[in-house]
Simulated scan of single mutants.
Amino acid sequence: MTAFELASARPVSEGEIELVEAARSTIDATTDAGPDEDGIHTVGAAVRAVDGRVHVGVNLHHFTGGPCAELVALGSARAAGALELTHIVAVANHGRGVMSPCGRDRQVLADHYPDIRVILPGPDGLISVVARELLPLAYDHASAQV
Rank of each mutant, 00 (worst) to 15 (best):
D140G: 06
R117S: 14
V129Y: 00
H62S: 13
Q107T: 13
G52R: 02
A144P: 00
R106W: 00
E133D: 08
N59C: 13
A79P: 06
E84S: 07
F4A: 12
G122F: 00
G66E: 08
A80K: 14
E16I: 04
L134V: 07
V146M: 02
I127Q: 08
H55N: 05
A92C: 07
L126D: 12
V118R: 05
R106F: 01
T30G: 00
P101D: 06
P35I: 10
L134T: 11
R132E: 15
V50A: 15
E16K: 09
C68W: 01
L74F: 11
F63Q: 12
A80P: 02
I116F: 01
S76C: 11
G66C: 12
P11F: 06
A33I: 08
Y139L: 14
A46V: 10
G44Q: 10
H62G: 05
V58I: 15
A45P: 11
I119G: 04
A80D: 09
R106G: 03
D115I: 00
G15E: 11
H94A: 03
L135I: 12
C68F: 05
S8V: 10
L120M: 15
V12H: 03
R96V: 04
E14W: 07
A3S: 14
I17N: 11
G39N: 05
E14C: 01
A46N: 01
T2G: 13
L126M: 07
G44V: 10
A29N: 04
V43M: 02
D124G: 12
V108D: 01
A110R: 15
V50I: 14
A3P: 02
A82G: 13
A23P: 02
F63N: 02
G122P: 06
A7H: 08
A29Y: 03
P101Q: 06
L60Y: 02
H55I: 05
T42V: 14
L19M: 07
G44H: 11
V43D: 13
T26Q: 14
D124F: 09
A90F: 05
R24Q: 14
A131H: 05
